[in-house]
């Protein structure tokens, strides 16, 4: 479980996150939605201890992220942010293999190598495995980074806008992969801008606006015409398709 209590964050006095409280149950895909500047990325970065400990408290599976060793937390959660710039010159296989670092600390065994091979297959990277990451397209590089995060094999996977640069087929494949992880007992917190991916694949939605959590609950409760139109301050319609909400915007 991820427990967030009174979490606040500001940049030079400008509040980015205002005393957020949140409890995320394990075994679900939780989508974080909201307009630009809502504080979604900040919330994920604070949960993943990428930003320094702020006001408030975050616990992941009972571990306080402010006081627990980073190495220990790396076996509880994997985080992938929006930035895929890489200063090091690495081949795709080497990058993905770094996902095993928290488990093998640079001395991979057969299980680690098998996990890397599986991730290369899952993310359609086998033919790119020996290419340098810097030679890949944006979408291919994004898949390589996703494969690295998944290879970490942690109970929690925290992804900030992972669909960036992905084509529709690979975006769908990623969500299907996350669903399989969820079915196997894993938990995912994912920032999504495409509301139909959120509505189609998530089990739980957290909606944010102006640094505050304004709604959370099952998909059908949060993804409604009134709530989304209010959240994004633009006309949005929600209908249904195969039992899931379908989000449409007016042209």
């Amino acid at each position: 479980m991820i427990e967030v209590e009174g979490l606040s964050f500001d940049i030079r006095g400008v509040p980015i996150l205002k005393s957020a409280d949140l409890r995320l149950e394990p075994g679900k895909i939780t989508a974080l939605i909201g307009p630009n500047g809502a504080g979604k990325s900040t919330l994920t970065r604070l949960i993943a201890r990428i930003e320094p400990p702020p006001k408030g408290r975050v616990r992941v599976n009972g571990l306080d992220v402010a006081t627990t060793l980073s190495d220990r937390l790396a076996r509880e959660m994997a985080f992938l942010g929006q930035q895929t710039y890489l200063a090091s010159r690495l081949r795709v296989r080497e990058l993905v293999a770094f996902g095993r670092w928290p488990h093998c600390h640079g001395r991979p065994g057969p299980a680690d190598r098998a996990a890397v091979d599986q991730a290369l297959t899952d993310f359609d990277l086998e033919t790119l495995a020996d290419r340098f990451v810097e030679t890949l397209s944006g979408g291919q590089a994004q898949r390589a980074h996703l494969a690295m995060a998944v290879t970490q094999q942690t109970p929690w996977l925290i992804l900030d806008e992972p669909l960036n640069n992905l084509d529709l087929a690979h975006a769908r494949a990623l969500m299907a992969h996350l669903a399989r992880l969820r079915d196997a007992g894993g938990s995912v917190l994912i920032v999504l801008h495409d509301l139909n991916f959120a509505a189609g694949w998530a089990d739980h939605i957290v909606a944010m606006k102006d640094g505050a959590i304004v709604a959370e609950g099952p998909v059908e409760e949060v993804v409604t015409t009134a709530r989304l139109s209010d959240l994004y301050e633009t006309p949005i319609s929600v209908s249904a398709h195969q039992g899931r909400p379908l989000v449409l915007h007016h042209i």
């Binding site: 060793l69 220990r72 959660m77 890489l86 090091s88 770094f98 670092w101």
Partner: peptide, 16 residues
Amino acid sequence: DVLGLGRDRAISLGSA
């Protein structure tokens, strides 16, 4: 090697 991946990734992988 982990540090060379950049701050976010290094922290996520458990680097102090």
